[in-house]
């Protein structure tokens, strides 16, 4: 089984808790035991851009799409035997001690090759050649009806161009599980689901030369018409660095847009 771990603040955010594994230790351990396929820290919600295509026009909005402050600060894609193991892995991540981690299974296709993974093998060794974005492919009731949802031409085009690194469909939110670690206890719940009408149905990771290309890629996805694409810039950092010092250093970054203004069209 493969799961997406999405780290967000949740409803009862806690201060940084130095007890337990650091991010560096967690990453090292999960790479060592081969459960960790890939992960990124993500830019703050203000730096997210929602891409919708309506009536042939590309519409850009500043994210996040929900009214709540819920936004993933990072994610990891893991591979393990079952949900209990996924919960255990998630429970040790420092973000789970500070916030809430959603554990969402990826779709298992009936005809899937059992040896293939969401993240291609050897991906970690691939040098970073451009800017990486997480494309969250979302269901949005405001989307156009009857859109041809054949995604293969899009996948093929951007795979060939070396832009789309990988991607996969997720199981719906109802199959997700929420994990928090508080005072060493692992708290598991089936919710709360976000009240938002939009929900994440899948993801792709792309590597582009600049923001404009990211928008071009996102806008070409059939779900940009029938739903929406949230374009979230990766925010690389040194996983072994001191968390408190990093937070202080980056304090001014939070809540400040670094991408083109709202409404810009490529």
């Amino acid at each position: 089984m493969e799961y997406l771990l999405m780290y967000s603040q949740g409803t009862d955010p806690q201060p940084w808790d130095p007890a337990g594994q650091s991010i560096g230790e967690w990453v090292a351990e999960t790479i060592e035991n081969r459960t960790n396929e890939y992960g990124e820290r993500l830019r703050p919600a203000e730096d997210t851009t929602l891409v919708r295509v309506r009536d042939g026009k590309v519409l850009l909005t500043e994210g996040p799409f929900t009214e709540s402050k819920e936004w993933a600060g990072g994610f990891d894609i893991i591979s393990c035997a079952d949900l209990d193991e996924a919960i255990e892995i998630a429970s040790k991540h420092p973000a789970t001690r500070m916030g809430t981690t959603e554990v969402r299974p990826f779709m298992v296709w009936p005809d899937a090759d059992p040896d293939s993974f969401v993240v291609p093998l050897g991906f970690a060794e691939r040098p970073v050649k451009g800017k990486r974005y997480l494309m969250l492919v979302c269901v949005d009731p405001s989307g156009e009806k009857g859109v041809e949802d054949e995604v293969d031409p899009w996948v093929e085009r951007w795979d060939t161009a070396g832009v789309r690194l990988f991607g996969e469909v997720l199981r719906p939110p109802a199959d997700g599980t929420f994990v928090r670690t508080r005072q060493g206890k692992v708290l598991v719940t089936d919710g709360p689901y976000s009240e938002a009408k939009e929900w994440i149905a899948g993801l792709d990771v792309i590597e582009v030369s600049d923001f404009d290309q990211a928008v071009e890629v996102a806008a070409g996805h059939p779900m940009a018409r029938s739903g929406l694409i949230a374009l979230v810039p990766a925010w690389p950092f040194d996983v072994d660095g001191d968390h408190a010092a990093r937070e202080q250093r980056e304090a001014s970054e939070w809540g400040r847009r670094t991408e083109p203004a709202v409404g810009a069209t490529p």
Partner: peptide, 8 residues
């Protein structure tokens, strides 16, 4: 959910 989330 037991099936799709692989609850063991």
């Amino acid at each position: 959910k037991i099936a799709h989330a692989a609850i063991p």
